[in-house]
Protein backbone atom coordinates (compact mmCIF):
# COMPACT_ATOMS: atom_id res chain seq x y z
CA UNK A 1 0.00 0.00 0.00
CA UNK A 2 2.66 2.46 1.06
CA UNK A 3 4.81 1.20 -1.76
CA UNK A 4 2.19 2.20 -4.30
CA UNK A 5 1.80 5.60 -2.72
CA UNK A 6 5.53 6.06 -2.55
CA UNK A 7 5.88 5.26 -6.21
CA UNK A 8 3.19 7.71 -7.10
CA UNK A 9 4.68 10.40 -4.90
CA UNK A 10 8.12 9.92 -6.29
CA UNK A 11 7.05 9.87 -9.91
CA UNK A 12 7.73 12.91 -12.04
CA UNK A 13 4.82 15.25 -12.59
CA UNK A 14 3.95 13.96 -16.00
CA UNK A 15 3.39 10.38 -14.86
CA UNK A 16 1.00 11.48 -12.03
CA UNK A 17 -1.36 12.58 -14.75
CA UNK A 18 -2.18 8.94 -15.47
CA UNK A 19 -4.50 8.81 -12.48
CA UNK A 20 -6.56 11.64 -13.86
CA UNK A 21 -6.67 10.10 -17.28
CA UNK A 22 -7.57 6.71 -15.79
CA UNK A 23 -10.58 8.23 -14.06
CA UNK A 24 -11.54 10.12 -17.16
CA UNK A 25 -11.29 6.85 -19.00
CA UNK A 26 -13.53 5.12 -16.47
CA UNK A 27 -16.16 7.79 -16.93
CA UNK A 28 -15.81 7.54 -20.70
CA UNK A 29 -16.32 3.78 -20.52
CA UNK A 30 -19.40 4.26 -18.34
CA UNK A 31 -20.88 6.79 -20.74
CA UNK A 32 -20.00 4.64 -23.73
CA UNK A 33 -21.64 1.65 -22.09
CA UNK A 34 -24.76 3.68 -21.49
CA UNK A 35 -24.90 4.94 -25.05
CA UNK A 36 -23.87 1.77 -26.86
CA UNK A 37 -25.67 -0.60 -24.49
CA UNK A 38 -27.93 -2.42 -26.95
CA UNK A 39 -24.99 -3.24 -29.21
CA UNK A 40 -22.33 -4.30 -26.78
CA UNK A 41 -24.24 -6.40 -24.29
CA UNK A 42 -23.30 -10.08 -24.61
CA UNK A 43 -26.73 -11.25 -23.42
CA UNK A 44 -30.23 -9.88 -23.04
CA UNK A 45 -30.13 -8.36 -19.55
CA UNK A 46 -33.64 -9.58 -18.78
CA UNK A 47 -33.25 -13.11 -20.12
CA UNK A 48 -33.79 -15.54 -17.26
CA UNK A 49 -32.33 -18.99 -17.30
CA UNK A 50 -32.99 -21.30 -14.41
CA UNK A 51 -30.10 -23.52 -15.43
CA UNK A 52 -27.58 -20.74 -14.92
CA UNK A 53 -28.45 -19.52 -11.43
CA UNK A 54 -25.76 -17.85 -9.33
CA UNK A 55 -22.85 -18.80 -11.54
CA UNK A 56 -19.45 -17.43 -10.49
CA UNK A 57 -17.45 -15.37 -13.01
CA UNK A 58 -16.36 -17.56 -15.90
CA UNK A 59 -15.72 -17.65 -19.64
CA UNK A 60 -19.44 -17.72 -20.50
CA UNK A 61 -20.43 -15.01 -18.03
CA UNK A 62 -17.55 -12.67 -17.26
CA UNK A 63 -19.13 -11.31 -14.10
CA UNK A 64 -21.31 -14.30 -13.27
CA UNK A 65 -25.08 -14.49 -13.06
CA UNK A 66 -27.73 -13.54 -10.55
CA UNK A 67 -30.60 -15.38 -8.90
CA UNK A 68 -32.60 -15.66 -12.10
CA UNK A 69 -29.67 -16.66 -14.26
CA UNK A 70 -29.33 -13.21 -15.85
CA UNK A 71 -25.85 -12.21 -16.99
CA UNK A 72 -24.45 -9.60 -14.60
CA UNK A 73 -22.19 -7.94 -17.18
CA UNK A 74 -25.11 -7.28 -19.50
CA UNK A 75 -27.16 -5.95 -16.64
CA UNK A 76 -24.40 -3.61 -15.54
CA UNK A 77 -24.06 -2.28 -19.08
CA UNK A 78 -27.77 -1.74 -19.54
CA UNK A 79 -28.00 -0.40 -16.02
CA UNK A 80 -25.43 2.25 -16.89
CA UNK A 81 -28.12 3.80 -19.03
CA UNK A 82 -30.75 4.23 -16.37
CA UNK A 83 -28.30 5.01 -13.58
CA UNK A 84 -26.33 7.65 -15.44
CA UNK A 85 -29.34 9.10 -17.18
CA UNK A 86 -31.16 9.39 -13.88
CA UNK A 87 -28.23 11.21 -12.32
CA UNK A 88 -27.84 13.58 -15.25
CA UNK A 89 -31.52 14.49 -15.34
CA UNK A 90 -31.46 14.94 -11.59
CA UNK A 91 -28.47 17.23 -11.86
CA UNK A 92 -29.92 19.17 -14.78
CA UNK A 93 -33.12 19.76 -12.88
CA UNK A 94 -31.29 20.76 -9.74
CA UNK A 95 -28.96 23.07 -11.64
CA UNK A 96 -31.68 24.77 -13.63
CA UNK A 97 -33.76 25.38 -10.54
CA UNK A 98 -30.83 26.17 -8.29
CA UNK A 99 -29.13 28.60 -10.63
CA UNK A 100 -32.40 30.36 -11.29
CA UNK A 101 -33.11 30.77 -7.60
CA UNK A 102 -29.56 31.75 -6.78
CA UNK A 103 -29.31 34.34 -9.52
CA UNK A 104 -32.69 35.82 -8.71
CA UNK A 105 -31.80 36.11 -5.07
CA UNK A 106 -28.42 37.67 -5.85
CA UNK A 107 -29.75 40.11 -8.41
CA UNK A 108 -32.80 41.45 -6.64
CA UNK A 109 -31.51 41.29 -3.07
CA UNK A 110 -33.96 42.76 -0.57
CA UNK A 111 -37.16 40.91 0.26
CA UNK A 112 -36.88 38.56 -2.71
CA UNK A 113 -33.57 37.40 -1.37
CA UNK A 114 -34.94 36.94 2.14
CA UNK A 115 -37.98 35.05 0.92
CA UNK A 116 -35.91 32.69 -1.20
CA UNK A 117 -33.47 32.27 1.65
CA UNK A 118 -36.30 31.25 3.98
CA UNK A 119 -37.62 28.77 1.45
CA UNK A 120 -34.23 27.20 0.93
CA UNK A 121 -33.79 27.11 4.70
CA UNK A 122 -36.92 25.04 5.02
CA UNK A 123 -35.57 22.73 2.38
CA UNK A 124 -32.28 22.53 4.23
CA UNK A 125 -34.16 21.56 7.35
CA UNK A 126 -35.01 18.29 5.65
CA UNK A 127 -32.04 16.11 5.08
CA UNK A 128 -32.22 15.53 1.33
CA UNK A 129 -32.97 11.83 1.52
CA UNK A 130 -35.90 12.37 3.86
CA UNK A 131 -37.39 15.00 1.60
CA UNK A 132 -37.35 12.61 -1.32
CA UNK A 133 -38.72 9.81 0.84
CA UNK A 134 -41.64 12.04 1.71
CA UNK A 135 -42.29 12.75 -1.94
CA UNK A 136 -42.16 9.03 -2.63
CA UNK A 137 -44.62 8.39 0.19
CA UNK A 138 -47.04 10.77 -1.45
CA UNK A 139 -46.57 9.96 -5.10
CA UNK A 140 -45.55 6.29 -4.85
CA UNK A 141 -42.26 4.76 -5.92
CA UNK A 142 -40.97 5.16 -9.42
CA UNK A 143 -37.91 6.27 -11.34
CA UNK A 144 -39.45 9.57 -12.43
CA UNK A 145 -40.67 10.46 -8.95
CA UNK A 146 -37.31 9.60 -7.44
CA UNK A 147 -35.33 11.64 -9.98
CA UNK A 148 -37.58 14.68 -9.73
CA UNK A 149 -37.60 14.44 -5.95
CA UNK A 150 -33.82 14.27 -5.75
CA UNK A 151 -33.51 17.11 -8.22
CA UNK A 152 -35.64 19.25 -5.94
CA UNK A 153 -33.62 18.15 -2.94
CA UNK A 154 -30.32 19.20 -4.51
CA UNK A 155 -31.61 22.50 -5.87
CA UNK A 156 -31.11 24.43 -2.59
CA UNK A 157 -27.50 23.32 -2.40
CA UNK A 158 -26.83 24.65 -5.89
CA UNK A 159 -28.90 27.74 -5.18
CA UNK A 160 -26.78 28.64 -2.19
CA UNK A 161 -23.59 28.06 -4.13
CA UNK A 162 -24.84 30.06 -7.09
CA UNK A 163 -25.99 32.90 -4.93
CA UNK A 164 -22.61 33.18 -3.24
CA UNK A 165 -20.72 33.31 -6.52
CA UNK A 166 -23.28 35.56 -8.14
CA UNK A 167 -23.09 38.04 -5.29
CA UNK A 168 -19.36 38.19 -5.70
CA UNK A 169 -19.66 38.60 -9.42
CA UNK A 170 -22.37 41.19 -9.26
CA UNK A 171 -20.29 43.28 -6.91
CA UNK A 172 -17.75 43.88 -9.62
CA UNK A 173 -17.59 47.35 -11.11
CA UNK A 174 -18.40 46.34 -14.65
CA UNK A 175 -21.82 45.18 -13.57
CA UNK A 176 -22.66 48.62 -12.22
CA UNK A 177 -21.60 50.22 -15.44
CA UNK A 178 -23.85 47.93 -17.41
CA UNK A 179 -26.68 48.56 -14.95
CA UNK A 180 -26.26 52.29 -15.53
CA UNK A 181 -26.44 51.70 -19.22
CA UNK A 182 -29.83 50.17 -18.64
CA UNK A 183 -29.05 46.51 -19.11
CA UNK A 184 -31.77 44.30 -17.63
CA UNK A 185 -31.14 41.69 -14.97
CA UNK A 186 -31.77 38.73 -17.19
CA UNK A 187 -29.55 39.98 -19.95
CA UNK A 188 -26.72 40.79 -17.58
CA UNK A 189 -26.98 37.45 -15.92
CA UNK A 190 -27.06 35.53 -19.14
CA UNK A 191 -24.26 37.40 -20.89
CA UNK A 192 -21.85 38.16 -18.14
CA UNK A 193 -22.52 36.56 -14.80
CA UNK A 194 -23.28 33.04 -15.92
CA UNK A 195 -20.29 32.58 -18.19
CA UNK A 196 -18.01 33.72 -15.38
CA UNK A 197 -19.67 31.35 -12.99
CA UNK A 198 -19.47 28.32 -15.21
CA UNK A 199 -15.85 27.41 -14.49
CA UNK A 200 -16.34 27.29 -10.73
CA UNK A 201 -19.76 25.72 -11.02
CA UNK A 202 -18.68 23.02 -13.42
CA UNK A 203 -16.17 21.36 -11.17
CA UNK A 204 -18.64 21.47 -8.31
CA UNK A 205 -21.34 19.98 -10.49
CA UNK A 206 -19.21 17.05 -11.50
CA UNK A 207 -18.65 16.15 -7.86
CA UNK A 208 -22.35 16.67 -7.19
CA UNK A 209 -23.07 14.27 -10.02
CA UNK A 210 -21.25 11.53 -8.16
CA UNK A 211 -23.10 12.42 -4.98
CA UNK A 212 -26.42 12.40 -6.80
CA UNK A 213 -25.63 9.05 -8.31
CA UNK A 214 -25.06 7.58 -4.85
CA UNK A 215 -28.22 9.14 -3.43
CA UNK A 216 -30.29 7.85 -6.33
CA UNK A 217 -28.76 4.42 -5.92
CA UNK A 218 -29.63 4.49 -2.21
CA UNK A 219 -33.24 5.31 -3.05
CA UNK A 220 -33.37 2.49 -5.56
CA UNK A 221 -31.84 0.17 -3.00
CA UNK A 222 -34.63 0.99 -0.57
CA UNK A 223 -37.13 0.16 -3.27
CA UNK A 224 -38.41 3.70 -3.61
CA UNK A 225 -37.11 4.44 -7.07
CA UNK A 226 -36.72 2.23 -10.12
CA UNK A 227 -38.71 -0.96 -10.09
CA UNK A 228 -37.80 -4.37 -11.50
CA UNK A 229 -36.93 -5.48 -14.14
CA UNK A 230 -34.85 -2.32 -14.37
CA UNK A 231 -31.13 -3.04 -14.04
CA UNK A 232 -30.40 0.23 -12.29
CA UNK A 233 -27.27 -0.41 -10.21
CA UNK A 234 -28.82 0.49 -6.85
CA UNK A 235 -31.71 -1.86 -7.55
CA UNK A 236 -29.27 -4.61 -8.55
CA UNK A 237 -27.67 -4.41 -5.13
CA UNK A 238 -31.06 -4.81 -3.49
CA UNK A 239 -31.87 -7.82 -5.64
CA UNK A 240 -28.49 -9.25 -4.79
CA UNK A 241 -29.34 -9.30 -1.10
CA UNK A 242 -31.20 -12.59 -1.47
CA UNK A 243 -27.90 -14.17 -2.42
CA UNK A 244 -25.84 -12.62 0.37
CA UNK A 245 -27.79 -14.58 2.91
CA UNK A 246 -26.75 -17.75 1.12
CA UNK A 247 -23.14 -16.67 0.96
CA UNK A 248 -23.20 -15.59 -2.69
CA UNK A 249 -21.89 -12.04 -2.81
CA UNK A 250 -21.39 -11.46 -6.53
CA UNK A 251 -24.82 -10.13 -7.53
CA UNK A 252 -24.70 -7.58 -4.70
CA UNK A 253 -21.05 -6.61 -4.78
CA UNK A 254 -20.58 -6.21 -8.54
CA UNK A 255 -23.07 -3.35 -8.91
CA UNK A 256 -21.98 -1.91 -5.56
CA UNK A 257 -18.37 -1.69 -6.61
CA UNK A 258 -19.36 -0.30 -9.99
CA UNK A 259 -21.14 2.54 -8.25
CA UNK A 260 -18.13 3.13 -6.04
CA UNK A 261 -15.67 3.18 -8.94
CA UNK A 262 -17.77 5.58 -11.00
CA UNK A 263 -18.26 7.89 -8.03
CA UNK A 264 -14.53 7.91 -7.23
CA UNK A 265 -13.82 8.69 -10.86
CA UNK A 266 -16.25 11.61 -10.86
CA UNK A 267 -14.70 12.93 -7.67
CA UNK A 268 -11.22 12.87 -9.13
CA UNK A 269 -12.25 14.43 -12.42
CA UNK A 270 -14.44 17.00 -10.68
CA UNK A 271 -11.72 18.09 -8.32
CA UNK A 272 -9.18 18.33 -11.10
CA UNK A 273 -11.59 20.29 -13.28
CA UNK A 274 -12.28 22.83 -10.58
CA UNK A 275 -8.55 23.15 -9.98
CA UNK A 276 -7.81 23.75 -13.61
CA UNK A 277 -10.69 26.10 -14.23
CA UNK A 278 -10.11 28.01 -11.02
CA UNK A 279 -6.52 28.63 -12.01
CA UNK A 280 -7.64 30.28 -15.18
CA UNK A 281 -9.64 32.68 -13.07
Amino acid sequence: MTAVAAVLTAAPRKRREWVYFLCLGILAVAVAAAVLAPWIMPYDPDATSFDAIYLPPGPAHWLGTDQLGRDLLSRIISGARSTLLGSIVLLALATALGVLIGLTAAWYRGWVDTLLARITDVMFAFPGLLFVIMIIAVFDSGTVTAVIGMGLAYAPVIAKFTRAIALEELARPYVDSYRLQGAGGLELSARYVLPNMVPTLLGYLVVLFGDGLMSLATLNFLGFGSQPPSSDWGLMVEEGRAGVIQGILGPALVPGLTIAIVVVATNVVGVRLSDKLAVRR
Binding site: A217, T218, R241, L249, A252, G256, V263
Partner: peptide, 18 residues
Protein backbone atom coordinates in the same frame (compact mmCIF):
# COMPACT_ATOMS: atom_id res chain seq x y z
CA UNK B 1 -11.01 7.52 3.44
CA UNK B 2 -12.02 9.17 0.18
CA UNK B 3 -12.57 5.81 -1.44
CA UNK B 4 -14.64 4.63 1.49
CA UNK B 5 -16.90 7.64 1.16
CA UNK B 6 -17.53 6.82 -2.46
CA UNK B 7 -18.88 3.38 -1.69
CA UNK B 8 -22.61 3.63 -1.10
CA UNK B 9 -23.30 3.02 2.57
CA UNK B 10 -25.66 0.14 1.85
CA UNK B 11 -22.88 -1.66 0.02
CA UNK B 12 -20.55 -1.09 2.95
CA UNK B 13 -23.24 -2.47 5.24
CA UNK B 14 -23.72 -5.58 3.10
CA UNK B 15 -19.98 -6.22 2.92
CA UNK B 16 -19.64 -5.81 6.68
CA UNK B 17 -22.49 -8.22 7.27
CA UNK B 18 -21.16 -10.86 4.94
Amino acid sequence: TTFLTSIPNFVVALVLVS
